[in-house]
Design a protein around this nucleic acid. Structure first.
Lengths: 338, 338
DNA sequence: TTGAAAGCGCTAACAG
DNA sequence: CTGTTAGCGCTTTCAA
C-alpha cells in the first residue's frame, strides 16, 4: 500500500488540498469544523506529509549542515552533539561534513548542499574565506560560523573568549608558583591559536623571566605537544609551567614530560585549553581552560535556525565565557581554595 | 538571478528536457553531437540539477542516515568518519542521528527520515527491534546494521569477532603471566558485551583459579570501570589481570587501580577492547583488542550504497577481524617478541 | 473561509 | 535517437 498523499486526505475530508495544506501548516483561515474533519482524515489515513515535495514547493527542507574539520578530532563530537540536539528538538535534521580544513573539499560540500536546498550551514571549519561567504550570501543561505572574528556583519558568529582564557591560564600557573611559563601555540592560521598566544604574551611580557623563545609551535595535536616539549626543554631546561594552546597538545606535553622523567605537577605544571573529556582520563588529570563546547554547538544551531525562520535577519556575535578547571596537573599544594 | 533549470538548458541546446535528463543521468541513447550541445549549454548556464526535484521525481535523494547512540561517545566518531568518507566519495550525503539508545527517539528519527525520502540507514544503535526492522522492510528502506547477530537475512550486518577477540585478550593476559584474570562485562542487552563475556568464560572456565565471581558488571563507561574495580578488589584482592569489556572501562579500571595504589602492569595487567584512540593517551598506554572501527563504518556505507543501487538485494554478513595491540598496560617483561 | 490551478524542477514512460 | 507529457506531493496565489 502506498503512502497517503495530501489528495487522499482532501478527498476523505471532503475539502480541497489547499485546505489540508492550511491546517498542516497552520496558516490561513480554516473553519474549526473543517479543520477537525481534516485532522480526522489525517489520522485515519495515517498521513505524513512528504518532506521532499514540501522542499520542492516551499524551498524549505528542514535540513541544516554542519561542516567541521574532522569529527574524529575529540573536540568536535561534543559540539556536533550540541548542534544535533537542538536541531532535532526544533524539527531539523543535520548533515555532517568533514572538510579536513581543506578548502576544495569544503566548497564541494557546499555545492552539493545547495543543490539539496539545505536551509542553512554551521561552519566549524577554518578554511572558509571571504569569497565563499559572499557566495553563500548571494544564495542567501543562512550561515553561522564558529571561532571567527566578526569581520563582517553578514553572518553570525559564535566564539569564546580565547584571549581572556589564555590570561586565566597564565595567571593560574603563576598562582601555583610557576617561575618560568612556556606556551605551546597552535597553527597561526587559526584565530583561536592566535588569540590564545596573544593572551599569553600580554600576560607574561612584562615579567622578568620572559623571553620569546618560551613560545614554541605545535599543531593542535598530541604529537605536536610532544615534539614541542622536546624542543622547549632543550632550549629552556628550567621551564616549570606549560600553557598549551589546546588540550590535545597538553596531553602530548604530559606524555613527553613523563617520558623525560619530569614530574607533573611537581617539576612542571601543565594547563591546557578547550575542556575536552580527554583531560580527565590522564593521570594526573589536566587543568584546562574550558570552553562550553556543547553550548557552542547548541547555540550555533539555535542562532542558525532563528536566522532561517526569522523575517528580519540580524547577525549577532555570541562570545561565550571560558572557565578554569583546576586539576592535578597544576596541583602543587600552594593553593588552599579547594 | 535565479538558478538555471533543465528547461533553460534544453532551450539553449535546442533539445527537449528528456534529452538533457538523459545526458545528465547517462541513461538512454543520446547522439554524441547532441550530447555535446547539451554539455556546452550546461556549462554556459552553470547548470546544477536540483537534488530536491530529483528526489521528488525519482524517489532517490542521495542521502543516507547514520543512527548511533551518541556521537560524543569516543567509539563512534571514527566510525562516523568512515561512513561519511565513503558516502561522500560515492556522492552521498549523511544525516547524523543520536538515539541515546532510546527506542522512542530512534523511531521518531526513522519517521522523519522516511518523510525525507532518505535512501538508506546505517544503525549503530542497540534498541532497534524486530518490529522496527520489519517496518523498514515494508517501506523497503535499505538497512545495514552494526554489531548485530544475523538473525534474519532481511538486512545486512557488519560486525566484528567479539568472541574470538575476548579469547585473544585472555590468552595474552595468561602469556604475560597473569594468574587470576577478572572480566568487567558490559550491559548484557548489547550483543557485543555478551559475546565478549562468553569468550572470556570459555577461555578461563577450565582453569583452576576460575570463579564466576571474577566477572563483574560495568556499563561500558569510564565510571563503570572504576566502580567495577572497587567491587572486584574487595572480592578478589589477588586479581592480577583485568579484561575489560571495552576500552572506556579499561580506562576506568586503570584510573581506579592507580588511586588504590596498585601498579599497572606490575601488579595488575589490563587489557581493553575496541581500539579507540583513548587507549594511547593514558600512562601506561592500554593494551587492547582492536576492532577496525573506521573500516566498520566505511564498509557499512559501502554495503548500504550497494544495496541502494543494486537491483538484486543480497544481505551479506560481514564479520571483521580483530587484533591485539600490545601496550604498556600488559608489559611485564615476560615476553620478548617486540 | 475555501477551492482551482499553476507551478517547484526533474524523471520516465510512451510514442515517434 | 529524441520529444511530449504526465506525474512526484506539496505550497501558494488568485478568485470566488
Amino acid at each position: 500500500m502506498l503512502l497517503a498523499t495530501i489528495r487522499d486526505v482532501a478527498k476523505l475530508a471532503g475539502v480541497s488540498v489547499a485546505t489540508v495544506s492550511r491546517v498542516l501548516n497552520k496558516n490561513g483561515y480554516v473553519n474549526k469544523e473543517t479543520e477537525q474533519k481534516v485532522i480526522t482524515a489525517i489520522q485515519q489515513l495515517q498521513y505524513e506529509p512528504n518532506a521532499v515535495a514540501r522542499g520542492l514547493a516551499g524551498k524549505r527542507t528542514g535540513t541544516i549542515a554542519l561542516i567541521l574539520p574532522d569529527i574524529s578530532n575529540p573536540f568536535f563530537p561534543e559540539m556536533a552533539r550540541g548542534v544535533e540536539d537542538v536541531a532535532h528538538q526544533l524539527g531539523y535534521t543535520v548533515i555532517l561534513c568533514n572538510s579536513d580544513d581543506h578548502g576544495v573539499k569544503e566548497r564541494s560540500y557546499i555545492e552539493v548542499l545547495k543543490k539539496k536546498y539545505i536551509d542553512g550551514i554551521i561552519f566549524a571549519s577554518n578554511t572558509l574565506d571571504e569569497t565563499d561567504v559572499e557566495e553563500m550570501q548571494k544564495n542567501d543561505l543562512p550561515l553561522v560560523i564558529l571561532d571567527r572574528a566578526p569581520i563582517q556583519d553578514t553572518f553570525s558568529v559564535v566564539r569564546s573568549k580565547n584571549y581572556e582564557g589564555a590570561q586565566l591560564a597564565v595567571k593560574h600557573l603563576l598562582e601555583v608558583g610557576c617561575k618560568r611559563i612556556a606556551h605551546i601555540y597552535g597553527p597561526q592560521e587559526f584565530l583561536t591559536a592566535k588569540e590564545r598566544m596573544t593572551g599569553y604574551e600580554d600576560a607574561v611580557r612584562h615579567l622578568p623571566w620572559y623571553s620569546p623563545s618560551l613560545m614554541v609551535p605545535g599543531n593542535f595535536r598530541i604529537d605536536g605537544g610532544m615534539k614541542a616539549i622536546e624542543q622547549l626543554l632543550s632550549r629552556h631546561p628550567d621551564v616549570d609551567g606549560i600553557f598549551a594552546g589546546n588540550d590535545l597538545m597538553a596531553v602530548g606535553a604530559l606524555k613527553a614530560l613523563y617520558r623525560l622523567g619530569k614530574k607533573v605537577p611537581e617539576e612542571v605544571a601543565i594547563c591546557g585549553f578547550d575542556g575536552i573529556a580527554l583531560t580527565e582520563i590522564t593521570e594526573p588529570e589536566i587543568t584546562t581552560v574550558a570552553q562550553p563546547i556543547y553550548e557552542m554547538g547548541s547555540l550555533a544551531a539555535k542562532v542558525l535556525i532563528e536566522k532561517i525562520t526569522a523575517t528580519v535577519k540580524a547577525n549577532p556575535i555570541h562570545e561565550l565565557e571560558v572557565s578554569l578547571i583546576r586539576r592535578g596537573s597544576t596541583k602543587r599544594g600552594r593553593e588552599t581554595d579547594e
